[in-house]
Each structure stands twice: as C-alpha cells, then as structure tokens.
Design a binder for these strands. Structure first.
Lengths: 112, 112
DNA sequence: TGAGGTATCTCAAACTGTGAGGTATAAAAT
DNA sequence: ATTTTATACCTCACAGTTTGAGATACCTCA
C-alpha cells in the first residue's frame, strides 16, 4: 500500500512517461502501472479519470473518443509537447528529492 | 522549485531520517534540508511546524521545550520507536515508486 | 440468468502545502 | 540610536488532490 501523498506525487510523472511510448487510455494505464511495479502500485479509477481530464485541461495531454475493434468506446490520450516539457521538469524534481533521501538513507542498514 | 505534491510526499521521510541522527528543532531542520539538498529543497516554516505537531500527535515524534545556552527557547523533537517503524515503511514505499519510475526513464529492453 | 471483467464518470469528506499574517528575541549594520 | 536581518515559533483561509462510495453500460462465459 502506497501512501496518499506519494501517490499524488508520482501519478503525473508516471502517466506522462507511459504516454511517451504512445497513445493509451485510462483503464489500460492502470494495468500498465500495476505490471511495471510488479503489483505494488494499484491505482484507483476514481483517482485517474479526473486526473487525465486535468492534464488534458492543462494542455499536457490531448484526448479523443475512439471505438475499438471490439466495439468498445474508449478515451485515448496522447502526450503533447508541453507534456514532454512537464515530464522533464517532474523528472528533475523527483531526482533532486531522491538524491536527498539517498544521502540520508546511506548510513541506514539495508532492508532484507 | 519542487511541486506541492512532491513536497508533501517527501517531508515525512526526510524529517524522520534527520531525527534518526538525534534530537533537533524546527528551524534547524529547515537549514539541514537546505544543506543536504544543495539548496534545492527550501522548506517553509508554516508547512513544517504544523507537520511536526501532527507527527508528534501521531506518536512518531516526541517534543519538549528547552532553553539553549544562548537563552533561546526551542522545541526539540526526537524520533520514537513507532517513528522508526514508520520510516522503514516510508522508505519501502519510496523505493517502490522510484523503481517504477526508473524503469520508465531508463528502459533497457534487452536486459528484461 | 448470473457473475465477473471492461470502461468511464461524479460527489462529499479528509488531508496537506501555500500565502498571508502575527509574536518575540538578539545580533549586526546603518 | 535606529533599522535591518536572522532566529524561532505560531495560526488561519484557501486551493488542490486522493479516497470511498456510488452510478452507468457493455461484453463474455458458464
């Protein structure tokens, strides 16, 4: 179980990173995150859908309704240039904090 | 400048990690964080003081008023056993998310 | 017919940093 | 002597975000 604040901090960079590889839709993104994390990160849909809308509204993503071959209507998102810039910024920030934490954790005994 | 959500996610583990080294007080913690991060992380006091109180209320820290040699009254905090356990948990969570992000940021398909 | 997976959405409640403001002491600069 | 800067703590309204609950609808398999 990942804490609320850590989820809030990591959703945006993770979504943008996933969409770098290409267009994707909400439900599938949840699956990908679960796969990539080995099951550790389990996102809720009620967190993700409003977030995708917010990112779209902010110009980081663009979404479009598309019916798949199976006949399902889905909302596919792709990343914009602005989204790419934001990802770079998010990445820089994350690495800054991670570096600080790494320094603090270096003298601590490692986990089994 | 670090985003609000990332600040929210990292404050608790950073504070607990700093207090592993020994007792400390709010104002000094802000300085230490700035030093450790090379100036990248600049915490505001209006964020930290209520947080320290919350952590104390949650049993992760204990605080006590003490007058220093210079005659200044300060509130010193030390970590509890419960705080140590929480730090371990926070650390595990952070590393999970960091690993997921690392995968997304440094894809090495040939090694997977 | 029923169960489970797919796929999206909305809403109030709870939590937390930001920006603004306040109080007080002591050293350094003007 | 006065002002600024640094130290050291506190509170408040505001905005943003996940959570938990609930809703809708379609498809597949038994």
């Amino acid at each position: 179980m990942i804490s609320k604040t850590l989820v809030a901090a990591s959703t945006k960079p993770i979504i943008l990173s996933i969409l770098i590889s290409g267009e994707d839709y909400g439900y599938q993104i949840i699956q990908r995150v679960k796969d990539i994390s080995g099951g550790t990160l389990e996102w809720s849909d009620n967190m993700l859908y409003p977030l995708l809308r917010r990112l779209e509204k902010g110009g980081l993503l663009v979404g479009r309704w598309k019916t798949s071959k199976e006949g399902r209507l889905r909302r596919y998102y792709r990343i914009t240039d602005k989204g790419r810039e934001e990802l770079e910024s998010e990445r820089r920030q994350w690495m800054s904090v991670n570096q600080a934490l790494s320094k603090l954790w270096k003298p601590l005994p490692s986990l089994e």
